[in-house]
């Protein structure tokens, strides 16, 4: 996961979303430990309070939980929860944007759907 200094998103949101992405990609499994606030601060050169804010966002949602004396862990069911959460936003964030850009370029919705069908996967 990488943080971008140029992004309009605040750093703590980038951290929260970064952790979510890694969970979704399967790079961090459930019940596994994530980096501590201080480690985040060190690796990414950010204020520990900022890193803490991002992690807190995830704890409040129940994605992460704290084991006393050990650190932050990924909660059970976090992956499922995250998938549902992201699926809800998928239409707005990706489909609508794709259609918008496509229509700008005079692609019809059908053509776009064809394009998606036609793409066989990354190995092609």
């Amino acid at each position: 996961m990488l943080l971008s200094g140029d992004s309009t998103k605040p750093i703590y949101v980038q951290i929260a979303e970064g952790i979510e992405d890694e969970i979704l990609k399967g790079n961090i499994l459930e019940d596994e430990q994530v980096l501590s606030t201080n480690q985040f601060a060190q690796v990414y050169n950010i204020n520990p309070a900022t890193a803490g804010k991002g992690i807190n966002m995830l704890t409040e949602e129940g994605i992460l939980f704290k084991k006393r004396g050990l650190g932050m862990f990924v909660a059970k069911g976090a992956l499922k929860y995250l998938k549902e959460k992201r699926r809800r936003k998928f239409f707005e964030d990706y489909v609508l944007k794709t259609l918008e850009e496509g229509h700008k370029l005079d692609f019809s919705s059908e053509e776009i759907i064809e394009m998606i069908r036609g793409w066989g996967g990354k190995n092609e």
């Binding site: 996961m1 990488l2 790079n27 961090i28 430990q33 980096l35 480690q39 690796v43 990354k122």
Partner: peptide, 28 residues
């Protein structure tokens, strides 16, 4: 960082290489 790594590289990456990496879930 556990299973994950972050590398600093100094080398050219072609668009093809970058796309292939993105598809494998690698951030650049």
């Amino acid at each position: 960082m556990g299973r994950l790594v972050r590398m600093a590289i100094f080398d050219s990456l072609s668009d093809i290489e970058q796309n292939a990496m993105r598809l494998d879930g690698i951030e650049i």
